[in-house]
């Protein structure tokens, strides 16, 4: 890491913050593009539903299996519902869903905006007297802030249900006991905490993707490398910020 590359990274971070700030300003003034927002919610949220459900269920299955056998050695099978549901609700569902969306949607947004940029469509939006931030960024930002928390909550719910099945089949834990334990373990602040984290990750994914899309220059190859850039950067930022956000949430609610 040379001095120049650090300087360059600082510049990128600065530009991303400015983009975010300008987008937020657009968020609070007319015109709003509700049609475009809905389009993005469908594209981002609804079209990610099935894959989110699959990931959620599978996570629940495998976590219950691992914790079940791990804890069985110490006679701790009864703790399985609490541990599985808490880890899924607080960490696994938000993180897996966000990483999945970073891959599925982040790369898509940056490729789409990047392609519009190299074909002068962004210039056309400006030349026609309209603001690309309003037309392109705001709908994507808001859609991911809304969709991601809901997807993650759904994923957690499916994971806990998946856990219920394995707990019963493999470890003979009755469904009633499992559900009771889950309900007494998970609090409303766990759910809102997870949603809050996901809303934050949604901002990270959409802003990084839009930023990189606007920065895309050198033709078709640029579009591809931008998509890659977003997935890698967004994933790293999500994982790192997850640590600090989790710490913050624990300080606030535990």
């Amino acid at each position: 890491m040379t001095f120049n590359s650090i300087k360059n990274d600082m510049k990128v971070i600065g530009e991303i913050i400015i983009l975010f700030k300008d987008t937020v300003r657009c968020l609070f003034s007319r015109p709003f593009y509700l049609g475009r927002l809905w389009e993005q919610i469908v594209h981002l949220g609804i079209e990610s539903l099935s894959i989110t459900i699959v990931i959620g269920v599978v996570t629940g299955l495998v976590m219950t299996l691992q914790f079940g056998y791990g804890l069985e050695k110490f006679g701790g099978t009864l703790y399985v519902p609490a541990i599985v549901s808490l880890s899924i609700m607080r960490e696994l569902a938000p993180i897996f869903t966000s990483l999945l969306i970073a891959g599925r949607i982040g790369s898509g947004i940056s490729a789409e905006i990047g392609a519009m940029n190299v074909t002068q469509q962004i210039d056309a939006i400006r030349a026609l007297g309209t603001n690309p931030l309003r037309v392109l960024v705001v709908p994507r930002l808001v859609a991911s802030m809304i969709s991601l928390p809901l997807l993650a909550t759904l994923s957690a719910f499916m994971g806990i249900l998946g856990g219920l099945v394995i707990a019963y089949v493999e470890f003979n834990i009755p469904a009633g006991f499992y559900l009771n334990k889950v309900l007494s373990t998970i609090t409303i602040s766990d759910v809102f905490g997870a949603m809050f984290k996901c809303a934050f990750f949604g901002i990270i994914i959409s802003i990084l993707a839009c930023y990189r899309g606007f920065k895309t220059r050198e033709g078709t190859r640029g579009v591809g490398s931008s998509a890659k850039w977003v997935v890698v950067r967004a994933s790293i930022v999500i994982l790192i910020s997850d640590f600090f956000l989790s710490k913050l949430l624990i300080l606030m609610f535990d």
Binding site: A124, A127, L128
Partner: peptide, 23 residues
């Protein structure tokens, strides 16, 4: 500023060399 230019651009219109259509 860019924002102040938007209304001007509805009065001075630019037809792009390659069309620049929304594809």
């Amino acid at each position: 500023t860019e924002e102040e230019l938007y209304p001007i651009r509805t009065k001075i219109s630019y037809a792009f060399q390659n069309g620049a259509l929304f594809d």
